[in-house]
Design a protein around this nucleic acid. Structure first.
Lengths: 217, 217
DNA sequence: GCTCACCGAGCGGAACTCGATCATGGAAAT
DNA sequence: ATTTCCATGATCGAGTTCCGCTCGGTGAGC
């Protein structure tokens, strides 16, 4: 579901994550080490070819350790994706804090830029497009709630956009579009095809501007 | 790569398809039977959980038979996707022939409708979104060529749109967007959320109209 | 009757388990 | 305050199970 987790309609689920929560210090290090390893391996061999043994070896751990924290192979990938999502979110939040955007578009643009940057720099970031194939029963996280709702709230508060379900819907669509175009940009170019990236900005802007702001183009 | 095969930048590859071409009649039936079975199983358990044994059993065949025709598990999925793509194409071609569209938009609209219809009626049609995870070396099919090119040619010929790389690029982006929004429509609704489907039409139309035609809305 | 089609036991490897072993850090003893 | 101690967290890796895939033998088509 990729970016949808961030702004989209599906709730963000912290997931069953690990089998056992880490207690001692070294184990939290292990956990992130495992994900680091998984990220690198994903870049090397892809989602399908990745094996738990590879992850374990790359992390300097044994197979058993992997399974101590994750119930199965897919769970590792889900956790990796979750971490990527989290990192993206905090990157955006951070950017929004430092360069306070002057309008809703600058805020959206910041998100696009953050996504592109992470895609380029973060190993295994393309895990963002790891689609949850099996219909994992989705449970709403009452704390986080729909991220789209939060973003909508932010836009309403900060920039005086009209809120409501309509705005949330538009955001969902915009995210879906932006995600797909960016995805296309990186499909055959590790650095991301600038043409598509630019088009992503244009399309996203025009789509949202068409309803909620002046068409600047 | 989903719809991109149809209009997108990546060439359509007939693939190595089957190991052995069917000679006798019963074997062609077997082949399609295997794909039918795979389609159903995909709907039931998803891409990841599907096993060759499931496909064989569902098709009333033995494991060996599966491997007689397909080199591995992924090849079965690829073949299934290929068949879906083919069916989509012929459905569109057929529709274009019967209700001759009056303008470029009607032609595009036909494609969207065909996609939605197949998504609803054809088991396993969501295989269209089976992303080729491992970087399978893509070989250009000289006969088929880029489908985007062909569509572009069609639009140029039939409706007098200006061609060139620009048009192909626009089409790629449009397909990417449309695909993602339709995908969203069916994510949690087997019948497809009408709101997203309608928005797909609007967005696709506006995007293409913004460059190549009057904005009718 | 020659080839095509099919079968399914069997092989290899990857996913995953589990009991043995080591490390940690807080509490008790000094 | 320091040391000892030990309950429990953490790790390991051989072993089990399951699944992808092979291959030699049997049956069906033309």
């Amino acid at each position: 579901m990729s970016l949808s987790d961030l702004f989209g309609g599906d709730p963000f689920v912290p997931a069953q994550q690990a089998r056992t929560e880490p207690i001692q210090q070294r184990s939290t290090a292990r956990l992130s080490g495992l994900l680091d390893a998984a990220a690198v391996v994903v870049d090397e061999v892809g989602f399908d070819r990745i094996t738990t043994a590879m992850v374990a070896e790359r992390a300097g751990a044994s197979i058993g350790t992997v399974y101590r924290y994750y119930p199965d192979r897919v769970a590792v990938l889900q956790a990796l994706r979750e971490r990527a999502v989290l990192r993206f979110r905090s990157r955006v939040a951070e950017q929004l804090k430092t360069n306070a955007p002057q309008g809703w578009w600058e805020a959206v643009d910041v998100a696009i830029t953050a996504f592109v940057d992470l895609y380029r720099s973060e190993p295994g970031f393309r895990i963002m497009h790891f689609d949850d194939r099996q219909g994992v029963p989705v449970v709403v996280d009452p704390d986080t709630g729909y991220f789209a709702r939060r973003v909508a709230g932010m836009l309403v508060e900060e920039f005086g956009l009209e809120g409501g379900d309509e705005l949330i819907f538009r955001l969902e669509v915009a995210v879906e579009m932006g995600d797909s175009i960016l995805s296309r940009a990186f499909r055959s170019d590790p650095q991301g095809d600038e043409r598509f990236i630019e088009e992503c900005r244009v399309v996203t802007h025009d789509y949202l501007a068409g309803y909620y702001g002046p068409s600047v183009r």
